[in-house]
Each structure stands twice: as C-alpha cells, then as structure tokens.
Deep mutational scan, measured.
Amino acid sequence: DVEPGKFYKGVVTRIEKYGAFINLNEQVRGLLRPRDMISLRLENLNVGDEIIVQAIDVRPEKREIDFKYIP
C-alpha cells in the first residue's frame, strides 16, 4: 500500500504536458505534475528513467496517486 509522505522508487512510463506518469510496480501508477517538481523540469525526464518520488495524495477509491519530486 502506498502511504502519503513516504518515498518510493518509480519508473517514468509516459510524459504529457500536464505531468509524468510514474509506475511503482505493475499495479501502482501515479502522476508527477510540473508544480510538484523541485529542481527538476518535465523536459529533463525521459521514459524509462528511474526516480525517487514522494506520495503526497493517495485516493485508493479512484486509484489515483499524486507524487512530488524532492532531490
């Protein structure tokens, strides 16, 4: 289970104008929005990159997770 405030290693699987989709595993995916990136820009991410993200909002009923990147 993903818990708000905890850090997780994930893989960038898709990049859109509104953010990057990060997979923690095959069943768990969330969104990293540009506003939640500190010292990292969306255009510097590539599909396949491994990054450490912090879960900031977890909505299991909608199967949605918002992430934050903190270097």
Rank of each mutant, 00 (worst) to 15 (best):
D1I: 15
D1E: 14
D1Y: 15
V2C: 04
P4F: 09
K6T: 08
F7S: 12
F7H: 06
F7T: 07
K9W: 14
K9I: 12
K9N: 08
K9S: 10
G10R: 00
G10C: 04
V11W: 15
V11P: 00
V11Q: 09
V12R: 00
V12A: 01
T13L: 05
R14P: 00
R14H: 09
I15C: 03
I15E: 00
I15T: 03
E16L: 12
E16H: 10
K17G: 10
K17M: 11
G19S: 02
A20C: 06
A20M: 03
F21R: 04
F21E: 04
F21T: 07
I22H: 01
I22P: 00
I22G: 00
I22Y: 01
I22S: 00
I22L: 04
N23Y: 11
N23I: 07
N23D: 12
N23A: 14
L24K: 00
L24E: 00
L24V: 09
L24A: 01
L24N: 00
L24T: 03
L24W: 03
N25I: 04
N25A: 10
E26W: 15
E26R: 15
V28H: 09
V28F: 08
R29W: 14
G30I: 04
G30V: 04
L31I: 10
L31P: 01
L31C: 04
R33P: 01
P34A: 12
P34M: 09
P34W: 10
R35N: 10
R35Y: 08
D36L: 05
D36E: 06
D36S: 07
M37Q: 03
M37R: 01
M37S: 05
M37D: 03
S39Y: 13
S39E: 15
L40W: 04
R41P: 06
E43S: 13
E43Y: 10
E43H: 12
N44E: 15
N46G: 12
N46H: 15
V47H: 04
V47K: 05
V47T: 06
G48S: 05
G48I: 01
G48K: 04
D49M: 13
D49W: 05
D49N: 05
E50M: 15
E50L: 15
I51T: 01
I51D: 00
I52F: 09
I52Y: 10
V53P: 00
V53D: 00
V53H: 00
Q54Y: 13
Q54C: 10
A55Q: 02
A55S: 04
I56A: 09
D57S: 15
D57P: 03
V58N: 06
R59D: 08
P60G: 09
E61M: 10
E61A: 12
K62T: 12
K62V: 12
R63E: 11
E64F: 14
E64N: 07
E64Y: 13
E64V: 10
D66I: 10
F67V: 04
F67Y: 02
K68Q: 11
K68F: 09
K68P: 01
I70N: 11
P71L: 06
P71W: 06
